[in-house]
Simulated assay, not measured.
Amino acid sequence: MESDVRNVSAALDLISEHWQPHRLTSINDYDVKVVKLQGEFVWHTHPDTDELFLVRSGRLTIQLRDRDVELGPDDVFVVPAGVEHCPRADEEVSALLFEPKGTVNTGDAGGDRTADLQEL
């Protein structure tokens, strides 16, 4: 069991690449990931799990097929399981993601933006 204190801001300072989530810690069967985002990601779904976005800084748009969801600092949004979405950050965003262990960032889309989860 992990018992070390982790600092979110310090962890985000270590990240230099966009769209490459890093595991900050885990709780039960979930990973808490830190990530920096910029530009448009890929349209994808996570068929078996919800995905929680918590924006720390910047403005993030979660594009859904029927609407856009705009998030600013300290905003939280949950993309329900199976809902196709495409995150977009016109300027750099720092965020936390809460997902079950083993969740792939590109979901069912795969491709060259699929990240190997890195540890901090």
Rank of each mutant, 00 (worst) to 15 (best):
L96Q: 11
R88M: 10
Y30E: 05
L37H: 05
L14G: 15
I62Q: 01
R65V: 00
N28G: 02
V76M: 14
V35G: 07
V83E: 11
V76N: 06
K36W: 06
S9Y: 11
G58W: 14
S94C: 11
R88C: 07
E91Q: 15
Q63E: 08
H18K: 14
L12A: 03
S26V: 01
T45A: 12
D13F: 05
T103H: 11
L52W: 10
P100Y: 11
E51I: 01
D48M: 10
A89K: 13
V78H: 09
H44I: 05
G72H: 07
E40K: 12
D68W: 01
A10P: 05
L71G: 01
L24R: 10
D13T: 03
D48F: 07
L97R: 04
P87R: 07
P87V: 04
D29M: 15
I15H: 09
S26I: 00
L14C: 08
S16G: 04
E84A: 15
G72C: 05
H22D: 01
V35E: 14
V32Q: 07
A81V: 03
E99A: 15
A95M: 11
F98S: 06
Q63S: 02
V35N: 11
P21E: 10
L12Q: 03
I27M: 13
W19R: 04
T25Y: 09
V32F: 12
V69S: 01
E99M: 13
H18F: 15
G39E: 09
E40L: 12
A89G: 11
V32T: 08
Q38Y: 15
L12I: 09
